[in-house]
Every structure is written in C-alpha cells, then in structure tokens.
Amino acid sequence: NNDVLSKHFEILKDELATVVLIWTWPFGRQFDLRSCSSLYNITGCRLTSDRSQYPKAHGVMFHHREICHNLPSLLTIPRSPLQKWVWMNMESPANSPRLPGPASLFNLTANYRRDSDVWVPYGRVVEASNDDKAFKIPNKDKLVCWIVNNWNDSFWRVKYFNQLSNHIKVDTFGGHFGRYLSYRDYFKTMSSCKFYLSFENSIHKDYITEKLFNPMISGTVPVVLGPPRANYEEFIPADSFIHVNDFKTPQELAEHLTYLDQNQEMYEQYFTWRKHFVARRSDFGVEHACRICDHIKQHKGYRVFKHLNTWYWG
C-alpha cells in the first residue's frame, strides 16, 4: 500500500509541477534535469528537453545562439497564451547577433544583466562557511599570468596587454600562445600566479565573466579590464581586485604590481575579503533553467518583453 501511495504521490507531484522545456541544449552542453532541488533548493519544478512535452510546458527556454538564425521557424509554432517564452543568453552584445523578427516574441529574459527578469551572473561572492574560512594564499612562483584562446588585434584587452608586457613579465598560456592547459592544470596554473589578467573580450554593463571569478576562487588577485570599477563593486568587494582604469598607463599598472610583489603585507590585503566571503561560479544552463522555472512558478501575471534588440544591443 505504501508503494502505491508513494507512486500516486509522485504522479500528483509531477502533474502539479511547473514544467520548463529546454528547447535546445545551450552550446550542445547537456545537464542533469533533476538538479534544481539539490543545487538551488528549488522545488515544484520539472525540467525537460523532450519537445513532445511542449504543449504541457509552462515555460520554454530558448538559448540565443541556437535560435538567432532560425527565428522564422519559431513563428509557425502554435502557442498557448499562458506559456512563457524565455530568451536566455550569456554572451555579450558584441558577441551575439541581433535578433530579426517581431519585437514582442519573448515574455521573459534570463541573462547576466541585473535588469533581466531572471538574473544569473557568471559568479557570486557569498558568505563563507567554516570550511571556507580556513583559506590560505597558495604558494606563488609567477608574478602575472594570462590564459587566452580568443585573440583579436582589435580587442582593447589585446592592445592593453601588448603595452603592459613591455613593462612587466607576463606568463602566457592558452590556445593563442600554443600552451594549452587541461582543466586541472588551468586552476593549478592560475593559483600559482600572484596576479591574473581578468580581461574581458568586450566592455558592457554587468558583463563580468568567469575570467574574474576563476582567479578569485583560485586564490589569485584579478587585474580587471571591463566595465567601470563601480560596476564591479556591485558584484565583489572593492579591495578584492585591481582595475586597469585606476592607472593612467599600462606602465603605471606594471609599476604598482611590481611594488606589491615586493610588499607581501600589502599584497595580502587583497585577500582580506576571504575572512568572510568566498567566490562561486554559476552553473551554466542548469541554473538558468531552474531559476526560470522558479520565476514562472511565482509570477503568474501577464508579461511580454518588447524591444529586446533595443534593450540588449542599444
């Protein structure tokens, strides 16, 4: 009897759940569809990638990269007035083709921008657990490091690096430099550097990626090139990073990094935040789907997002 009741309960729970359909796997990366509860304490949600479930779905997550060149086919799909279509994208406007087609196709946005409906940043600084508070700065045998695959001479970060490297030694890794690193070696290498060049490939509001959070997790001081300092300080403590904008020239920055290298006490002040906080990376795709589901479950009002192109690309 208990088994029968348990089975009925599971069926009822499934019928009452908010259903979110992942239209395509973002960048083809699959994830565990049952992890909302364990990862984010989000219950009452059911994720699926089975398009036959489309009529039952309360929400559909569309990843920008897979639909941007195929919008006409979406317009032919019958659609319930109650179903929420969610535009999901984590690439910057500079790396995302504009969307052709109607201005009011989507109901909600899921993005790294704080003013999106479902906000999922690339990472977060959160309160440290007792285990995290035992942090020690890793041993260092390199001063400045940069790991980069995507190289373009017109990128501001490339121009800045070319000038900076005239004044200080930068240990370089990644595809562009023909020094590939495995996933394990990536973090091991990063933690062996005193400073890491957390240079974004394009400059946009709130576009602060894993290039910042990886060194913070690894016990390395990020030197950031991206949106203004004030924008970074909305996400992370002001004394946890160095911003290139704080210096008039790359040479001045190089001199400051050299000075910190010779003053251990000053260098260690960049880790004061670790007494209370720890950095975490977001889980790409699955976190978006779970938080989309939670949002749809809690917000039943009518909603349409008009002028996506104006909002995102300006």
Rank of each mutant, 00 (worst) to 15 (best):
K211C: 15
K211D: 15
L212N: 06
L212P: 02
F213T: 06
F213H: 07
N214C: 10
N214E: 15
M216G: 03
I217W: 10
S218F: 12
G219I: 13
G219W: 12
T220F: 09
V221D: 07
V221W: 11
V223Y: 07
V223D: 09
V223H: 07
L225C: 05
L225H: 09
G226A: 12
A230L: 04
A230R: 12
E233Y: 06
E234D: 09
I236Q: 08
I236A: 03
I236L: 03
P237C: 04
S240Q: 02
S240D: 03
V244E: 06
N245L: 08
N245C: 01
D246F: 00
D246R: 02
F247E: 04
T249R: 08
Q251S: 10
L253E: 05
A254M: 05
A254G: 06
E255P: 01
H256C: 04
H256R: 05
T258E: 14
T258C: 06
E265Y: 12
Y267E: 14
E268P: 00
E268K: 11
E268I: 04
Y270D: 01
Y270F: 14
F271A: 11
T272Y: 12
T272A: 07
W273S: 00
R274S: 08
R274Q: 13
H276F: 09
H276G: 06
F277V: 02
F277I: 00
F277M: 03
A279M: 05
A279Q: 05
R280G: 00
G285L: 08
G285S: 11
G285Q: 11
V286A: 06
E287V: 01
E287Y: 02
E287F: 00
H288I: 01
H288S: 01
H288W: 00
C290Y: 11
I292H: 02
C293R: 05
C293E: 06
C293Q: 04
H295M: 00
K297L: 09
Q298P: 02
Q298S: 11
H299C: 02
K300G: 03
G301R: 00
Y302V: 05
R303A: 04
R303L: 04
V304F: 09
V304S: 11
K306A: 15
K306Q: 14
N309E: 02
N309V: 06
T310V: 14
Y312E: 13
Y312L: 15
Y312S: 12
W313Y: 15
W313R: 12
